[in-house]
């Protein structure tokens, strides 16, 4: 943001330039790298850099994207995948958030006691747990949602506990000096102060949710984006495979952006850090 502000000020310093030019420069500053990358990609086969059969050029992927969107294949798979993410991720937030509040704020002794265990359990590579989940829950929806839930709960839980634990002692002291009760202080000062940390956890979880989603869909599924990608690869439909890859990336970005917007709405204005 610092850099963009600097460029912004330089642009506005050029005063004589019209608004269209300034907007254009701003657009180039924000998306220039992406445009340059796509252009290079588009012309890479002509330069002999990549094999277009294995890595199709952006225009081909885009055409396929439009085609699969129009005939509903893509939308169906996106809907199936997003349902799984929403269930696993949503459940994780619903469970880990209150649990984090309780462990961080109320049962500190318990938190200290179970923290090593939680750290250990959370360190288990979730992909190694796939067979366990499948053995226990079969290869239906439940095991997929469960594995996403399992992975998503840890960042939310740990970051919530940390956020509450790191509440500014001076603010706690101030609230106490006002004669504020324990519950009010927890709600008005500690929870609110923990929000940035909580949102960090939620954003991490969202990323993990997509990791696990694709993993789960590649291991045992008959629908969803992960399945679509693997299927396309198996039948050597490279553009279709790349549509899947790009769609997953775009969905991840969209979810992250949505969470960021929610955070901004909840947290209000924030101090911008420049280094």
């Amino acid at each position: 943001m610092e850099l963009s502000a600097r460029i912004e000020s330089k642009i506005s310093g050029m005063g004589a330039l019209g608004i269209p030019v300034r907007l254009g420069l701003r657009f180039a500053h924000m998306f220039g790298a992406i445009i340059a990358f796509l252009t290079l990609w588009e012309f890479a086969p002509a330069l002999g850099l990549i094999d277009p059969v294995i890595i199709p050029v952006p225009s081909v992927i885009f055409d396929k994207f439009v085609e699969l969107s129009l005939n509903g294949v893509l939308l169906n798979n996106v809907a199936v995948s997003m349902r799984r993410v929403a269930a696993g991720f949503g459940l994780a937030v619903c469970v880990a958030l209150p649990l984090g509040f309780l462990l961080g704020g109320w049962f500190k002794a318990l938190e200290t006691a179970v923290n090593p265990l939680l750290q250990l359990v959370s360190q288990a590579n979730p992909f190694t747990l796939f067979p366990v989940f499948i053995t226990l829950l079969g290869i239906g929806e439940i095991s997929k949602v469960s594995i996403i839930f399992w992975v998503c709960q840890w960042p939310v839980l740990f970051n919530t506990v940390t956020g509450i634990r790191n509440a500014d002692p001076v603010l706690v002291k101030m609230s106490r000096s006002l004669g504020m009760g324990r519950f009010q202080m927890f709600y008005k000062v500690m929870l609110r102060g923990a929000l940035p940390s909580v949102f960090t956890g939620i954003r991490m979880s969202a990323v993990f949710a997509f990791f696990m989603l694709i993993g789960a869909e590649m291991i045992g599924a008959s629908s969803g984006l992960g399945y679509m990608i693997l299927q396309a690869q198996a039948t050597f439909q490279m553009p279709r495979m790349w549509v899947g890859i790009v769609t997953v990336a775009l969905l991840g970005m969209a979810v992250n952006l949505a969470i960021l917007l929610l955070e901004r709405k909840v947290s209000g204005r924030k101090e911008e850090i420049s280094i």
Binding site: D168, V170, K173, M174, S177, R192, G193, L195, S267, G268
Partner: peptide
């Protein structure tokens, strides 16, 4: 019945 002022201001940043 007593009001306190702290060295570190103790203002809620939000």
């Amino acid at each position: 019945d007593r009001a306190m002022v702290f060295q570190q201001y103790a203002l809620l940043p939000w």
